[in-house]
């Protein structure tokens, strides 16, 4: 009897890329921002990141085990969520806040809606919004960076903790453009260093994990709108009243490069991604400019657009190759 071979549908070759590899790439891309946060905010940043990641992975495992679903921990997507959640916390946040945040992100936002690929909002951002509403004081207790002071905030010495205003709240001249670029300013762990985020994003673009559409249109829209509104591209005296300063402040870089590009909650269609990016930029501009009680606006801008993503995708389904214009 002749040997029987596997019969299946073509194609018979597959690319090397896998979900796990994609998620690992995102983790690698987030390393520079993590290192920057540890440098500027000390080892407590490392503790928050570790707690957040462990909590995310544990919650994913725990939920899937008890919901009798396949356990997807090996795909690294929970690690990404844990990292992003930590990057959205201020350095002064207690460790349990990180643990709760990750649990919300994984269980409530991701798994309740069907797991990977099904969450209609970015899990880390939705969790951040919930934490912000529930523990507003803890979530906005900004501390000044102390580059190289590993034990900042971990010793009882009162001088260790210096509260600080974020660049968007601070007076003009408090932070130089260079400070904003390298991340030497108060803010959440992962958002402050534009440099580290850009290095990570460059890696993701190089690995083709993300494409240019959402980050470029998001950042571009913000830059143009703030430039029009303030009339200043950049000047040291203008502070937050200049386009470049706005671009490098707050969660914009982290949001545009790593949050808005979340696969599940952004459109898959090319034009949809462009509309999504422009929408994020416009909403962020509106929130920062017209809502005085909320100087930051990145999370909400992205969350709003997340909800709109399915609709955007529906109206931007590409015309198939060979679809002829109807001459009605």
């Amino acid at each position: 009897m002749q040997k029987q071979y596997t019969v299946s549908s073509s194609p018979h070759l597959r690319d090397n890329v896998s979900t796990r590899r994609v998620m690992q790439d995102v983790c690698i891309a987030l390393i520079p921002a993590g290192l920057a946060s540890i440098w500027f905010f000390g080892l407590r940043a490392a503790i928050l990141i570790a707690v957040s990641v462990l909590s995310a992975v544990f919650c994913e495992w725990f939920y899937c085990k008890h919901a009798k679903k396949p356990i997807p921990v090996g795909d690294f997507s929970a690690v990404v969520t844990g990292l992003l959640l930590a990057y959205n916390l201020p350095a002064s946040a207690p460790w349990w806040l990180a643990a709760i945040g990750s649990a919300i992100a994984i269980v409530l936002v991701k798994q309740f809606f069907g797991g990977i690929g099904q969450n209609f909002m970015n899990p880390a951002l939705a969790a951040r919004a919930i934490l912000l509403a529930s523990w507003a004081t803890l979530m906005t207790a900004w501390v000044a960076p102390q580059g190289g002071n590993w034990l900042a905030g971990l010793t009882p010495a009162a001088t260790d903790v210096v509260s600080g205003a974020t660049p968007l709240q601070a007076e003009a001249g408090a932070y130089s453009l260079w400070d904003l670029f390298i991340g030497n300013c108060p803010g959440t762990l992962g958002e402050t260093s534009a440099l580290a985020l850009l290095i990570g994003a460059a890696y993701l673009l190089f690995r083709r994990v993300i494409n240019w559409r959402i980050p470029a249109t998001f950042l571009g829209t913000c830059l143009i709108l703030f430039w029009i509104q303030t009339g200043t591209f950049y000047s040291a005296e203008a502070g937050a009243n200049s386009a470049l300063y706005q671009l490098l402040s707050g969660g914009l870089m982290l949001g545009a490069l790593f949050m808005a590009t979340d696969y599940s909650s952004s459109p898959v269609t090319p034009w949809g991604q462009i509309i999504f990016g422009v929408g994020c930029g416009a909403l962020l501009f509106i929130i920062r400019t017209f809502n005085s009680s909320m100087p930051e606006g990145c999370s909400y801008a992205i969350l709003f657009m997340n909800v709109a993503a399915p609709l955007i995708e529906r109206v931007t389904t590409p015309k198939s190759f060979g679809e002829v214009k109807s001459h009605a």
């Binding site: 890329v17 690929g117 494409n211 952004s266 898959v268 590409p318 198939s320 190759f321 060979g322």
Partner: peptide, 17 residues
């Protein structure tokens, strides 16, 4: 495994589906 909605298939489809 579940679709992660990365959009690679959309970019790859030569018929723009």
């Amino acid at each position: 495994s579940p679709c992660i909605r990365c959009g690679r298939c959309v970019e790859a489809c030569p018929m723009r589906l």
